[in-house]
Amino acid sequence: MHISEHPVLKEKSNEKVFFYFNNHRLEAKKGQTVAAALMANGIRKLGVSRKLSQPRGLYCSNGRCTSCFVTINGLDHVISCTTLVENNMQVFSNNNDPEIRGEKYGN
């Protein structure tokens, strides 16, 4: 899910960064979004829906559908398709409601 050569686009950086998804170390290219980096590593399921317990993943790729929520560095419900991956970033599946001051939201 990364364009390596294109006649119109300028040459992109091939600098690698490493991040973690559910405690597994993965590789990404600097400048990729978290969602693109996960897709490039073969990860399609980013969590489960709270209501129907069905798999959630990348859908619109522009931050409008909120289907690609993940937890990044302890912050719940971050939209992964608009967030750039950073070195040593900790990303986790979003399988629950977010917590607000130690209490579950939506209960």
Results as ranks from 00 to 15, higher is better:
K51Q: 07
E27S: 10
K45F: 09
I43Q: 03
D97P: 01
F21N: 00
Q32K: 04
E99W: 13
L38M: 09
M39P: 02
P7E: 12
R25A: 03
T71H: 11
K12G: 05
L84E: 13
Y105L: 13
S93I: 06
D76L: 04
K12M: 13
S53A: 06
R25W: 10
H6W: 07
G47Y: 06
N22V: 04
V85Y: 07
R56Q: 03
L46Y: 12
S13H: 15
V8T: 02
K104W: 15
D76V: 01
R56E: 00
H6L: 07
E11M: 12
K12V: 03
K29M: 14
I72G: 02
R44T: 12
K30M: 10
E99R: 14
H24R: 11
L84Y: 13
K29A: 11
G57A: 01
N73F: 07
V91N: 01
F69K: 00
N23I: 04
G102M: 14
D97K: 05
N96D: 12
L38P: 03
Q90L: 15
A28H: 10
G63W: 10
C81V: 03
D76R: 02
V70H: 05
V34Q: 04
F21S: 00
N87R: 06
L75K: 11
A28K: 10
V78L: 07
A40L: 11
H24P: 04
S4C: 06
A28N: 12
N95M: 08
L9Q: 06
P7Y: 12
H77N: 13
M39A: 09
Q54W: 05
F69N: 00
V34A: 04
L58C: 09
C68A: 08
L52D: 05
P98Q: 06
L58K: 08
V8N: 15
P55T: 00
F92G: 00
Y20M: 06
F21C: 02
G74A: 11
N23P: 04
V78G: 05
N94W: 07
D76Y: 07
E27K: 05
E103Y: 15
M1Y: 12
F18D: 11
K45A: 11
R56Y: 12
L38Q: 08
C65R: 04
E5Q: 13
A36F: 04
A40H: 12
K104D: 13
M89E: 09
S93N: 06
V8M: 15
K12T: 01
N23F: 06
R101L: 15
P7D: 14
M89D: 08
G102D: 15
A40T: 01
G47V: 01
V70S: 03
E5W: 10
A35S: 07
L26T: 00
N107R: 13
K30V: 00
I43W: 09
H2T: 07
G31C: 08
A40I: 03
F92P: 01
Q32R: 07
G102S: 14
F69I: 00
V78M: 10
T33M: 07
K30W: 08
Y20F: 13
N23C: 05
F21T: 01
K30F: 09
K16M: 07
S13N: 13
I43S: 01
V91S: 00
F21Q: 02
F18L: 12
R64N: 12
N14H: 12
K29S: 10
G63M: 03
L46F: 15
D97A: 09
P7T: 14
S80T: 00
L75Q: 11
N22S: 09
P98G: 06
H77D: 13
N94D: 11
